[in-house]
């Protein structure tokens, strides 16, 4: 399968934080949820992909091209929503349209105004009069209106109230039906991703913990709930992490079928991405 994004051994060192050998690939036409707690390295990785930070080691290929050598060509086909708001708020959507017409070769004004209408955004109002959710919708409309082949969305739902968040998710779901593009979507709100993402890449403390298909992850991984006595019988190599709660032990296993065959423990729940994140970050080995 053709990959739209390939990251190999990406390293970037700061005084108090480090990206360590980040490696993952995003196949064409797929949606990847990029998860991890705040400060895990999601935004830094995305900034490296976009060359917003450029002093890093490793290789990043987008559409098979080197992201530093073919920067301009690649960016014509990428739509971006960053975690912070980024349009100067004295501008209006009309101003954005005029500027983007000369920035992107494939800018589609009709599409942009159709999105503005769909999102109920007035084209001649200054952005500062918009709510946070409206600003995010404008950013999404801008990211989509040049027919990108790859969408990079960094925490697009972060900081939004539940209503605005569900609206934004709905927008993405509609886009997925209409457009044919690959998506890298970073979020620490994992429930947003469970039904949307084909792949999940989990980053913790600057390192990739896992990168798998969502089905593989949700079907194979399991959350074993057992007593202390039962837990003590489990071989260390048969689980990834465990957490002791008030009444029981919660144990994360990589293959629940194999585990069930080996141990006589009946309660093995399906995991959620939240369980996975919490146990991998806070759990013990």
């Amino acid at each position: 399968m053709e990959n739209v994004l390939e990251i190999k051994n990406l390293c970037k060192k700061y005084d108090n934080f480090e990206l360590k050998n980040i490696t993952f690939t995003l196949p064409k036409g797929m949606i990847m949820g990029f998860i991890g707690e705040n400060g895990a390295g999601k935004t830094t990785t995305i900034k490296a992909i976009l060359n917003i930070i450029n002093s890093y080691q490793g290789e990043i290929k987008i559409f098979g091209l080197d992201n530093r050598e073919d920067d301009k060509k690649i960016k014509e086909d990428i739509g971006v929503v960053l975690d912070d708001m980024f349009f100067p708020e004295i501008l209006t959507p009309n101003d954005i349209n005029k500027a983007m017409l000369d920035i992107y070769k494939n800018w589609d004004s009709k599409m942009f105004y159709d999105y503005l209408k769909e999102f109920s955004l007035l084209p001649n109002k200054q952005i500062k009069t918009f709510s946070k959710g409206m600003k995010k919708k404008l950013e999404i409309a801008t990211a989509l209106s040049h027919h990108p082949k790859l969408l990079i969305l960094d925490e697009p739902t972060s900081g939004l109230d539940p209503i605005a968040r569900s609206e934004v998710i709905e927008i993405f779901q509609n886009i997925l039906e209409k457009e044919e593009c690959s998506i890298l979507l970073s979020s620490h709100i994992t429930t947003d991703l469970e039904h949307m993402a084909d792949y999940i890449t989990f980053i913790n403390n600057g390192e990739i913990v896992l990168s798998k298909t969502t089905d593989e992850l949700l079907n194979n991984y399991g959350l074993v709930k057992c007593s202390e006595k039962e837990f003590k019988k489990i071989d260390k190599k048969d689980y990834l992490k465990y957490k002791k709660t008030k009444y029981e032990y919660e144990v994360l296993v990589e293959n629940k079928k194999d585990f069930k065959t080996k141990y006589n423990i009946s309660i093995i729940d399906k995991i959620t991405l939240d369980d996975l994140m919490v146990l991998m970050i806070k759990g013990e080995k």
Binding site: K47, I52, D71, K75, I78, M85, P88, E89
Partner: peptide, 16 residues
């Protein structure tokens, strides 16, 4: 306005 609204980082994600 560019600084306050993080335009500079975004501008780098645009072609050239």
């Amino acid at each position: 306005y560019d600084n306050y609204n993080n335009w500079d980082a975004y501008s780098i994600s645009l072609p050239n």
